[in-house]
Design a protein around this nucleic acid. Structure first.
Length: 263
DNA sequence: ACATTGACCTGAGAGC
DNA sequence: TGCTCTCAGGTCAATG
């Protein structure tokens, strides 16, 4: 799940549920998801504190503690959050359990343990250390700011969109949708994009991510000309009704329409 | 500098 | 039913 739009939805979920309550205790169910923090340190940082607010950069969610530190959550391929009361409702792969004084619990679940839980004092420093580029939906990221790094890339456009150092937040799924909306073939070299195509690509990036968030990431409710609801083998293109094709790009499967997205 | 591959992990689904 | 194989929305390191 977790690309930028998914993480933005998780952010809204956490904001609506788990803020301002005292954390009584926490349980680290899997140390493998911990970044540069030990189980003991994480516990010490959280217990007795409250979550006060959240921020997102790319695929990372930062949760501000009343101590001034930030809990960092990255969701890998399978991560999500769940807030619940009865322990019967605990999800199957809880890796971090946070218990609140009001009797509710927040779980960070990650089946494949590919995500990361960490603590940082300074978001900016964390972002620099991870070498993350600008957040794709940052309002300050206009076309000129985006162009600075992105169009210098010599990579294929799908790889560039997924490169978190160039622009943060886009993964395999949404890069496919952005390229479909822009009518650009995923193997196109960034350097070969024309001026108009560059604009179109940038606009599609902003539009697709925004639309996904507006529909709370539920692809069934996406506009009828979107690829994602049809992103399966043998399905047809919502625009030309030809067959969707797949190719491998840097080990990931790209879905695209060979007629609407010519190289 | 970039593309590819495998590793990290676990589980779902397909095919036999 | 049970086994094996392949694949999965991410990232990192090694190799060509």
């Amino acid at each position: 799940m977790p690309e930028l739009p998914d993480v933005e939805v998780f952010k809204g979920y956490l904001d609506a549920t788990a803020l301002h309550q005292e954390i009584t205790d926490v349980a680290v169910r899997s140390r493998q998801v911990l970044g540069n923090v030990s189980s003991q340190k994480l516990t010490d940082h959280l217990e007795g504190r409250r979550f006060e607010s959240t921020r997102r950069h790319g695929k990372y969610l930062f949760v501000h503690l009343d101590s001034g530190r930030w809990l960092v959550l990255h969701f890998g391929m399978t991560g999500f959050l769940k807030y619940f009361k009865a322990m019967d409702d605990e999800p199957a792969h809880a890796r971090l359990l946070v218990n609140f004084a009001n009797g509710y619990h927040l779980v960070y679940d990650s089946q494949r343990k590919l995500g990361e839980v960490d603590v940082t004092e300074d978001i900016q420093k964390f972002i620099e250390k991870k070498k993350l580029g600008p957040d794709a939906l940052d309002p300050d990221l206009d076309f000129d700011a985006f162009s600075k790094a992105f169009f210098k890339s010599r990579a294929m456009v799908k790889s560039a969109l997924m490169d978190q150092q160039l622009v943060a937040g886009i993964g395999n799924i949404y890069s496919d949708e952005i390229l479909f909306q822009a009518g650009v073939h995923p193997r196109t070299k960034v350097a070969r994009l024309g001026e108009e195509e560059k604009r179109t690509l940038f606009d599609a990036m902003k539009e697709v991510l925004q639309v996904a968030i507006e529909h709370r990431v539920n692809s069934e409710e996406f506009p009828s000309n979107y690829l994602l609801p049809h992103r399966r083998k043998g399905e047809e293109c919502p625009r030309c009704h030809g067959e969707i094709d797949t190719i491998k790009i840097s080990g990931r499967t790209a879905y695209y329409c060979p007629r609407c997205q010519q190289q």
